[in-house]
Design a protein around this nucleic acid. Sequence first.
DNA 1: ACCCGACGTTGACTTGGATCAAACGGCTCG
DNA 2: CGAGCCGTTTGATCCAAGTCAACGTCGGGT
Lengths: 244, 244
Amino acid sequence: MHSPAIRISSQSLQVACSQCNLRELCLPYGLHSDEVEKLDEMVGMRRRVKRGQHLYRAGEPFESIFAVRMGFFKTGVILEDGREQVTGFQMSGELLGLDGISSESHTCNAVALEDSDVCVIPFSRLEHLSREIESLQHNFHKVMSREIVRDQGIMMLLGSMHAEERLAAFLLNLSQRFTTRGFSPSEFHLRMTRQEIGSYLGLKLETVSRAFSKFQEGNLISVQQKHIHILDIPGLRRILRKQD
Amino acid sequence: MHSPAIRISSQSLQVACSQCNLRELCLPYGLHSDEVEKLDEMVGMRRRVKRGQHLYRAGEPFESIFAVRMGFFKTGVILEDGREQVTGFQMSGELLGLDGISSESHTCNAVALEDSDVCVIPFSRLEHLSREIESLQHNFHKVMSREIVRDQGIMMLLGSMHAEERLAAFLLNLSQRFTTRGFSPSEFHLRMTRQEIGSYLGLKLETVSRAFSKFQEGNLISVQQKHIHILDIPGLRRILRKQD
DNA sequence: ACCCGACGTTGACTTGGATCAAACGGCTCG
DNA sequence: CGAGCCGTTTGATCCAAGTCAACGTCGGGT
């Protein structure tokens, strides 16, 4: 079931939150500089995860959460019949592993979709430090809450939207997240397969492909394999609104 | 759009976590008795919400989370076209309002499905106290994480299960939660309509109704309107496994 | 006690997306 | 440079669930 013994290349390189260009997206947001220095001590090490490798696997004991510094991940579970169900995609500045807190073991797999770096944040240290630093505590609570809101948004998408509406929502969401990170809102490279998009959106890969083609016909986007160019953001939004 | 000016009956009656029979399901879990006493001060008041009334509405400023002491709630949002999308059902010992932390305003509506009591937990006080009480902090983090895991479970259900599988999962989940609360695992009263179940499960009410009938034909359950008697729990589980 | 309206069931028909199948494009690796 | 494979596209067909419609049932209010 598991892929044949992939060794996880894991190297610790010291990094400082205070130097990180993601600090406004991540846990240090709004902290004073002396507080950020304490964070630096907490985030002991960085870990490099190559494309295709696991950051963690479902069932492994939970010890740390991870902040994506660079790269792109998917999270998901493998169902009994071998099918994969994707539960999310994470990009730089986003946290991974929050699901593991409740049961003290990871409930899903996290796989890098491109060569990536993460900050390893030992959870007990995070709890300890957020008892000292009020705004760190509050940031962390907000991040967890945002994850809940995000998941509920997807529940809504899965519960009440049609294939094209789902894909439009997906593209707009990616676009928005790329924008926040200073990339182009309209042109980007998908790091996941049609299959993975489909799994995430509750659709089959053929349906995803057809919806892409349909959008292209309507001059809403131009697709070339994994390269996406959004030509008409308002048009995509209109598709979303249609029945939601 | 809103129902005609329903007045929320809200009365404060002092209650103590230390006396509450739900403390093992709720935030006080595992706390020492002196710590639970501090919790008592935090939970300033109880609020009574009558069937059909809102505990809070989407858009209202977020100040407190709520613990259900008694009763039954649904959470959901109203979509532009007036349709309701249900995002969850909450029973005694469960927390409501966690989604509001991230944006500092509630992102959904919470409505009582039967006359209910909740404990009002001012969030800033909870954060303050969990900086003092390590196990309270940890409990709270676990509760939030559990909510994330729960939502992801529903994403999986919505993304990859058929109507009957969804309903089986729903019934088994309810059964399990009633059991935890000391009620019968096999016999209970649904407090929500077919419409609400359908909205939650991403199905139309007719489909829910048909699935109930199908289960009844197969002697898995007996349904009489809102009264459910589960006759064959392993049988329901087998339906779940079938394609998941 | 009765009526009304909300909720639930069931049947007939339609349809969006799944499934099955075939062909193509673009990497990677020998 | 060519072979092979993975991922993608597109077409044809099928089926689970949605839609529309009619009827049944329960419970609350006068």
